[in-house]
Amino acid sequence: MNGVDAASVLYGLEAINANNGWAISVVGITIVFTGLVALSVLISQIHKLVALYDNPGKIKKLFVSRSESVARAGTPKAHLDLTEAQKQVCRQYNLLAQTMDDVISLPKLLRMAELSGLNDPHANMNLLIKSGILCADEQGYFRWDEDIFIRTIS
């Protein structure tokens, strides 16, 4: 309002219309929303990028033909609907996995499960592999996929 002749000052809707207020507001909030939505989509993928970086083999997999990848016999990632008892088993194995390094040795995990007195360690480990919670890397070790674990037990 500084330096503006009081008589020329507009008020109300007239002022908003004259100063293109509606358009500025709509454009403004749209840009803010677009920016943050794009950002949220992007950061929701960061952990996948990190996983790719940790597992360069996965990048290679993207370029091999479908038939090859089918034949590759990797660990299936299909989401399984587990029973409550199976979910409990997953939680138990999660505790065991937390005591291990980022990369998990499957024979070692199996041995620990046996030593801990967990029931049916072989079948349950197979369940973890089938559900994709335990997934193989290219080095002969396995990783605990926290995302799939949470999705599976929730």
Binding site: A73, L106, P107, G140, F142
Partner: peptide, 20 residues
Amino acid sequence: GALLVALEAGRAVVLNRPGD
């Protein structure tokens, strides 16, 4: 079914597809 092939240095391979 599925077989666990435990190799040296804690490495392992899971064979769980027909023909493995």
